[in-house]
């Protein structure tokens, strides 16, 4: 019993050093050396200011922007809203999102009226983006063809064609839109 205890304590210390410090620090070293951008959170900066991470969704309100998933988008409180499939709260949530989109002249689509898994989903399906093309073009005084082309350029296929699903990153799409319209 006592010999077990002594060994258990010693092994805890050894593994703290090997697995708790050695392993993550080695990985951090490799990551910082070869994949600095990703390892630090894929931050998008302008000068010294951090605008966000291209991997994390942000809320874009108003008809001038493409809308993403209707999430809280607070990176410090990630997670889904956890509404059940027959929840009144979900019914109300989706209804109000749909009404909001209709007011901007957008026909609501699935991803635009449902919360995501992380509460930070940066992406929407290509169909969700195309549903917004006319409304966004009108609000920005651009031709629908120009805006549609922008969406096409930002459409990413599934990984190797079959892992995951095709998507459009709304953060990158709206940043490109801003460049196009010259708004800062």
């Amino acid at each position: 019993m006592l010999v077990h205890l002594r060994r258990a304590v010693v092994l805890s210390v050894v593994l703290f050093v090997v697995l708790g410090l050695g392993y993550p620090l080695l990985e951090t070293g490799v990551a910082q050396l070869f994949f600095k951008t990703q390892a630090n959170g894929s931050l998008v900066t302008r000068g010294a200011a951090v605008l966000g991470s291209s991997e994390l969704g942000q809320r874009w309100t108003g008809p001038k922007w493409f809308q993403g998933r209707p999430d809280p988008d607070n990176p410090m409180a990630s997670g889904p809203q956890n509404y059940g499939p027959k929840s009144k709260l979900l019914l109300r949530f989706s209804k109000s999102q749909a009404a909001l989109l209709r007011r901007e002249g957008i026909t609501p689509t699935n991803d635009l009226v449902t919360g995501s898994g992380s509460g930070l989903d940066p992406d929407i399906a290509p169909a969700d983006a195309y549903a917004q093309v006319n409304a966004v073009a009108a609000a920005n005084h651009l031709s629908p063809a120009t805006v549609r082309k922008l969406v096409e350029r930002h459409t990413v296929g599934a990984y190797w064609g079959f892992l995951g699903a095709p998507y459009v990153n709304v953060f990158q799409l709206d940043m490109a839109l801003a460049k196009l319209t010259g708004s800062r």
Binding site: F93, D111, T114, S116, A165, Y167
Partner: peptide, 19 residues
């Protein structure tokens, strides 16, 4: 809530990039 057409399935609580 009025969105009968859900071609990519039940997306509430799911991430677009995974489907």
């Amino acid at each position: 809530a009025g969105i009968k057409h859900q071609p990519n399935g039940n997306m509430e609580g799911k991430e677009v990039r995974f489907g």
